[in-house]
Design a protein around this nucleic acid. Sequence first.
DNA 1: CTGAAAGCGCTTACAG
DNA 2: CTGAAAGCGCTTACAG
Lengths: 347, 347
Amino acid sequence: MAVSIKDIARIAGVSHSTVSRALRGSPLIPAETTRRIRLIAEEHGYSASAIGRSLVSGRTEAIGVVVTSISDPFNGEVVAGLEESANAAGYSVILATSQAQPEREMAVVKSFQARRVDGIVVASSRVGSNYLPMLQKLRIPVVLLNNQHPDEVTHSVSIDDARGAYEATRYLVQLGHSNIGFVGDKFGLHSDFERRKGFLEAMREVGRPVPDKNTVWGDGKVEGGYQAARQLLLKARPSAIFCYNDLSAVGALRAAEMAGLAVPRDLSIVGFDDIEIASLVHPPLTTIRQPRRELGIKSMELLLKLLRGEQAAKAMLLPGELVVRSSTAPPRAYQSISAGKNSATKS
Amino acid sequence: MAVSIKDIARIAGVSHSTVSRALRGSPLIPAETTRRIRLIAEEHGYSASAIGRSLVSGRTEAIGVVVTSISDPFNGEVVAGLEESANAAGYSVILATSQAQPEREMAVVKSFQARRVDGIVVASSRVGSNYLPMLQKLRIPVVLLNNQHPDEVTHSVSIDDARGAYEATRYLVQLGHSNIGFVGDKFGLHSDFERRKGFLEAMREVGRPVPDKNTVWGDGKVEGGYQAARQLLLKARPSAIFCYNDLSAVGALRAAEMAGLAVPRDLSIVGFDDIEIASLVHPPLTTIRQPRRELGIKSMELLLKLLRGEQAAKAMLLPGELVVRSSTAPPRAYQSISAGKNSATKS
DNA sequence: CTGAAAGCGCTTACAG
DNA sequence: CTGAAAGCGCTTACAG
């Protein structure tokens, strides 16, 4: 075992109480004694055990963080924000993965509980407030980040999905589009619902209720987006598609290519998230940027507030930002409409 | 504070020793008593404190993991592999960030030490074995992943940089290239050195020693790669460029575009890593794939072996894999050489 | 100023 | 089978 406070006490010829005080800088101990003890501790590579300290303080200075997957670059940025502000406040981050499985999420939270973390952040929770009663018994504050099972009980920080989708749709409408398709995410739960809501609302506002055949669901990944967009192109022939996320949008891009449609000339495509690849695909995607790092930072700050016993907002919604790139343009529809008129004239 | 073993003991009307035994499934306790105690514990939401247990066991079942940055997608995959195998073995991962700063890396390792983690993995270490003496005193096993300060003391798992670079270069040579440029990474330390070594070796083997003007350094990112490649194109006019990593290669791609060179017709470009964007840029990059997740898995497996007190290889080198996409082709050099001859004839 | 004592939540050898 | 005791590494109120 590592060198303990007792070892230092023996070497310094004092009691371990005195060592503890000296190391913590207690004003009770004269400067000279403190100096001497610290020197000895240093020499012997002493490092105070957080375990021992935790046992008496009742705090671990550790925060448990659950994400669905770490290899997902979206989460990488979120975790970076979480780690950054936890670290700045002197907390360590214990990171675990839920694989988007509610049971694993529960298991992970239980292990955090056993480790007596001071607080927990769950990103993209699939469980939501179901385990709250359990945690409330232990008084472990929890913050849900982009929660997929919203409620009014837990503290949460989320992207404003509905507003982002609304703005993306408004932008398409302003470009002149009216027949717009929606590629959702069948696993997207709450965020799928909210983004669709924002989309539908924007369309309703301009008197363009969306027919059923204009909404279709992928899986939030490229392949599912491709399949969904393909269907959409066959059935609804939209001049623009608003996609649940960038990965779906990349799939839609491929579907357009396969169908011989040029983006944005023949078809406009908008994504959501602004992950790295959004700006790297061809053409670069117009999308709604999620402030990923900020989501992490704000969540951790909220949690730290709770740990300090301060009052904090129950739910915090961060706005996304429309990033216009090259996958969107006015529709050719005008031309085909006028072409239509011409032919109407002719007939 | 949370409900403790004593609380359960009081409620069950037994000593806390008996509760501990029942909970741990000691054969000393009769089945009925065990059942009853467990039921009570369950009812009261009891969760054994890992802190208390650690204090007596001397183990925390926690592994400290240091990466330079979590938002870097390369590390995301590595951490995913680390977390996956740690978790499978019942260990938690404490994650921290070095920001590629040696001092921060040291600080992080010290905090891990204070937390008494059972082992440590440091990815892309900037410190290397310098803190080993300190850790050896504490007997905390350390595994360095893609270490940037190699030595023979520590256990390590790394990509075989030299071999990957060698193979990438051989591939270009086989395509017919002979004037090949190298875009290095001035911060790349060991891996820059090794990749350049593999590159030079492959060139030497085919009797094409590389003139100084053919090697130039970026910063491992897009911007630096762009600047470096621009210089290279001006001074050495190579028909192919082997880049330190994919980000540099993306920069080189831009430099080619700015110079009016078509890739791969006028210029072949090869990257290293195979991060996501490698396949998404235009044209998709030929590159050497690093088995990122596997680097994480192997590192953690090595560490777990050490924790079990088993013998393990000091240094493990994982091979990369050449992934041929569309940024490479035979050189036009043949043609320009003949063009050169023509003009020579003219003059 | 300093030490002995108690206690945080556990585990386990020891005694019965 | 079961409990009292000791101890893991700390902190801190208490007594001197």
